[in-house]
């Protein structure tokens, strides 16, 4: 047996144990990414093998938390893929404006950049007081960071460029104050966002949403888990609601796809049909 094959077996055993002890289910995550992240975590853990680490992982919650941080990829940015946010602004917001109140579920919000981007977009489009964003993530530590809305100043240049390319109508500097080497987002942006812990692999649906965004989260999932999560979204979304995925994701070949229409060309933005099945 090669070391790689052995490592794969250790991963499977560990993920089974983690699920049974902590309820976190990584058993259906795409393997190559998980393998890379686990070997990086292992290298910094002080343990020689994953099997040796397993004993402590299953007994020591704090040690497990370091593993959890190592496994979940919390990379995000404001207005990532500006063309996507432009399409939302131009092709989805006109529909949203016709509702008295809009509920949005943003699943896998990481450190909050995407939720704040949506809030800025909706405020600029005149939806003040008429929307609420439920931003959720499996990782409670990043949710706390998301609530703070504080980002390293050096990232702001990039965020600003994204904002402009995404069709922002204001001046991005109005949305934050710089303090030392951090940018603190305006607290008013947070008023319409609820941050909460939610695990797409094990928790239930959210109910009655007009729009769901889940970008660059399911790329880490295997087919079976993707289908589960899409089913969750489908049952949480009102007819006429919008489902938005990451730039390189699509509903093609997915079980729920025949209930959805494509909204924007070459963009993973879908609308749930009104007809009942």
């Amino acid at each position: 047996m090669t070391p790689e094959e052995l490592f794969d077996i250790e991963i499977q055993l560990l993920m089974e144990g983690v699920y049974q002890v902590y309820g976190y289910d990584f058993r259906e995550y795409a393997e190559s990414s998980l393998r890379r992240r686990l070997s990086q975590w292992l290298a910094g853990s002080g343990c020689a093998t994953l099997s040796l680490a397993q004993s402590q992982i299953l007994r020591d919650r704090q040690f497990f938390d370091t593993l959890l941080r190592g496994i979940t990829v919390n990379v995000s940015e404001m207005f990532r893929d500006p063309a996507f946010f432009k399409a939302i602004r131009e092709q989805v917001v006109p529909y949203l404006k016709t509702y008295p109140f809009v509920k949005i579920w943003l699943a896998g919000c990481a450190t909050g950049e995407e939720a704040y981007s949506m809030a800025i977009l909706l405020l600029e489009e005149g939806l003040k007081g008429r929307f609420r964003i439920y931003a959720t993530d499996i990782n409670e530590e990043v949710i706390r960071k998301a609530q703070d809305g504080i980002y390293p100043l050096q990232e702001l240049q990039h965020f600003t460029r994204n904002y402009q390319h995404a069709g922002g109508t204001g001046s991005f500097s109005d949305y934050y104050t710089a303090r030392y080497n951090h940018a603190i987002l305006a607290p008013s942006l947070r008023e319409n966002i609820v941050f909460a812990a939610h695990n797409l692999a094990v928790d239930t649906d959210f109910g009655e949403m007009n729009m769901i965004l889940c970008r660059n989260v399911m790329i880490y999932f295997k087919q079976s888990l993707k289908e589960r999560v899409l089913g969750l979204f489908d049952s949480s979304l009102l007819p006429g609601g919008f489902l938005c995925l990451g730039t390189k994701e699509s509903l093609e070949h997915r079980r729920i796809s025949d209930r959805y229409d494509t909204v924007a060309a070459r963009m993973p933005i879908y609308r749930k049909r009104y007809e009942k099945k």
């Binding site: 890379r36 790329i219 390189k248």
Partner: peptide, 21 residues
């Protein structure tokens, strides 16, 4: 590989992406 994503190979020969740093 698409811009802004890592390209990874899975056992069985399928391709996946990641937005890892």
């Amino acid at each position: 590989a698409p811009a802004n994503y890592h390209l990874l190979v899975e056992r069985g020969g399928s391709l996946t992406f990641s937005v890892d740093p």
